[in-house]
Nucleic acid binder design. Structure first.
Length: 426
RNA sequence: GGAGAGGUGGCAGAGUGGUUUAAUGCACCUGAUUCGAAAUCAGACGUACCUGCGAGGGUACCGGGGGUUCGAAUCCCUCCCUCUCCGCCA
C-alpha cells in the first residue's frame, strides 16, 4: 500500500503513475478522496489529542487535590473531566471510522510503476527486454505435448490426482517424481551459491501474515483456507518469507537480506480456467523456489538486475530457450513497481510459458508490513522488497519434457544428472 | 485434550490504582581516560501519529480487544500466545 504522505506530497507523480497503469480520470479521483480523508483524519487526531491532554492534566490535579484534602474542589473537577472524556471518546470513534475508510481506499490503489516501465494496458504491450536469438529445438512433427509424454513414460498422472484430490493436483511418479526433486535441489543449490539463506517456512500462515504481503483482504478467493484454525495455505513462499521481517527494523549494514525457500504453492485459481490450461500449464499445487531480497532503496533496481541474471543463469544451465519481458503498466501485478517475466519456449505446444516473475515492490509491501531499516544517521526508513521465482517447477518440467524429446527418450540436461541419477527418461 | 504458571523496552528484570516523563542491570551509541585497547567514569539510549521553519510540544502504546475509574502496566471481562507437567502422537 502506498504511503499517504507520499500521495499528499507527490500527488502529480502518483496520478501519472496510475495513468500508466491505464487508470481513467474517473478512477483517479480516488486520490483526491484520499487526500481529503487524510486531512480530516489529521484534524480529528489533533482535536482528540488536545482533549485527551486536557483530561490528563485535570486528572493529575485531582490527584494532588485529593492528597491535600481539597475534596470539594476535586469533585467539581471530576464533572468537568467526565465531559471531556465523552468528547474524546466520540472523537476516537470518528478517528477510527476515518482510518478505516482511508485504509480501504489505500488498499485499492496499486503501486506506481517505475519510470522505466512502458505504458500499456494489455499483455500485448509488454516490451521484449531480451529475445531468444538462437533457433528453437528441432522437433519432429510427431513431437508430443508434455501431457502425452507423461502418459507414455508414466511421469505424472492427472486422473489419479482427481481421484485423490481433484483436478489440477497432479501425482508425480517414478522418474517424474525424481525429476521434480532434482530440480528443487538444483534450484536451491544455485540460490545458496548466490548468497541466499535457505528458509524452510510453514506452508500455512495466519491472517496477519496473509495481510502483510497483500493476499488479504483482496485476494482471499485465491487462497485455500483452513477455516477451523483460521489459517491459509500459502500461494507462494513469498508470503511467509517476506513476513519474517514484518514489524522489524533492520540495521542498514544487514542489507540486503537475501532469502530463498522451496515450497509447494497452493492456488485456487478461481475463474482462471480456459484455453491453454492443459497439463502442467496451470495447476492448483506446484513447487516453486522463490528468491527474496530486502534492500536499501538506493540499490534496489541494481539488485533487480542481479536477480534477473540469476534466473537467466538457471535457464541457460537447463538449456532452455527463454525470453524476458518487461511488463507494461497495465499488466503488472498490483503491488509491483517493475516486473520482468521470464517465459520458456514449450517446443511441442509451440508457445511461451511464464515461469518466473521478478519484481521490485519498492516500499509498497514494506509499508504495509512495516519493514524498516535504520540508516547511518539513525533515521528510520522503509526498505524496498524484491522477489522472483527461481524457478517455478511445473511449467519448467513441461518445457523440459517437450523440448528434449528424442526417438530414444527424453534427454535430461547435464546439470541435473547428479540430482536425477539418470540421463534419459526412456 | 487436561492441570498449573506466565506474557513489561534489543535482552534480563522490578513495579498490584495517583510526580511511572516504567526502577535497575546487560547490550548498543557518544565522550573522557589510553600510544591503542581492556577496565573505569560521564552522558545518550523505544515506536507510531499529530503539531511546529526549528528548538520543541502533544497523544497513544507494558500480548490483542473491551470494561471499571477523575486517574490503569496495576482491578474486571474476553481472546491470543508461551512455558512446565500429564495424556495422545510422527
Amino acid at each position: 500500500m502506498l504511503q499517504v504522505k507520499v500521495i499528499r506530497e507527490e500527488k502529480q507523480r502518483i496520478i501519472n503513475g496510475l495513468r500508466k497503469r491505464g487508470w481513467s480520470a474517473a478512477q483517479i479521483k480516488i486520490i483526491d478522496q484520499i487526500i481529503g480523508l487524510d486531512e480530516q483524519r489529521r484534524n480529528t487526531q489533533k482535536d482528540m489529542d488536545d482533549s485527551l491532554a486536557e483530561g490528563n492534566k485535570l486528572a493529575k490535579s485531582i490527584g494532588q487535590m485529593m492528597a491535600q484534602g481539597q475534596k470539594a474542589e476535586a469533585e467539581a473537577l471530576k464533572i468537568e473531566v467526565a465531559a471531556l472524556k465523552t468528547k474524546s471518546k466520540m472523537m476516537e470513534e470518528q478517528l477510527n471510522t476515518l482510518k478505516a475508510q482511508l485504509d480501504e481506499l489505500l488498499y485499492s490503489v496499486p503501486n506506481i510503476p517505475h519510470k522505466s516501465v512502458p505504458k500499456g494496458k494489455t499483455p500485448e504491450e509488454n516490451k521484449v527486454a531480451k529475445d531468444w536469438k538462437k533457433p528453437f529445438p528441432a522437433l519432429a512433427d510427431t513431437a508430443l505435448p508434455h501431457w502425452d509424454l507423461a502418459k507414455q513414460y508414466n511421469l505424472f498422472d492427472f486422473e489419479l490426482g482427481v481421484k485423490l484430490t481433484g483436478s489440477g493436483f497432479p501425482v508425480y511418479r517414478g522418474k517424474g517424481a525424481r525429476l521434480q526433486r532434482a530440480l528443487i535441489q538444483f534450484f536451491l543449490d544455485e540460490a545458496g551459491k548466490a548468497g541466499y539463506e535457505e528458509i524452510a517456512p510453514p506452508l500455512l500462515v495466519n491472517e496477519d501474515t496473509a495481510r502483510g504481503t497483500g493476499q488479504l483482504p483482496d485476494k482471499e478467493a485465491q487462497m485455500y483456507k483452513c477455516d477451523l484454525d483460521n489459517l491459509y495455505l500459502i500461494p507462494t513462499a513469498e508470503v511467509p518469507v517476506t513476513n519474517i521481517l514484518r514489524d522489524e527494523i533492520v540495521p542498514a549494514k544487514d542489507l540486503p537480506v537475501k532469502m530463498t525457500a522451496y515450497t509447494p504453492c497452493f492456488r485456487r485459481e478461481a475463474g482462471a480456467w480456459g484455453a491453454h490450461v492443459r497439463g502442467l500449464n496451470r495447476v492448483h499445487q506446484f513447487d516453486k523456489i522463490e528468491i527474496v531480497q530486502i534492500e536499501h532503496p538506493d540499490r534496489s533496481y541494481k539488485t533487480l538486475q542481479g536477480m534477473i541474471r540469476h534466473v537467466e543463469k538457471l535457464m541457460n544451465k537447463l538449456e532452455l530457450p527463454y525470453r524476458i519481458l518487461l511488463l507494461c503498466g497495465g499488466d503488472m501485478g498490483f503491488a509491483s513497481a517493475k516486473t520482468y517475466d521470464f517465459e520458456v519456449w514449450s517446443g511441442a505446444q509451440k508457445r511461451w510459458l511464464e515461469v518466473s516473475s521478478v519484481s521490485c515492490f519498492e516500499t509498497f509491501q514494506s509499508n504495509r508490513m512495516k519493514v524498516r531499516f535504520r540508516d547511518e544517521n539513525g533515521k528510520i526508513e522503509l526498505v524496498h522488497t524484491l522477489n522472483g521465482s527461481a524457478l517455478a517447477l511445473a511449467r519448467i518440467v513441461a518445457a523440459l519434457l517437450e523440448n528434449n524429446q528424442t526417438p530414444e527418450g527424453i534427454r535430461i540436461p547435464k546439470v541435473l544428472w547428479k540430482y536425477t541419477g539418470f540421463k534419459m527418461i526412456d
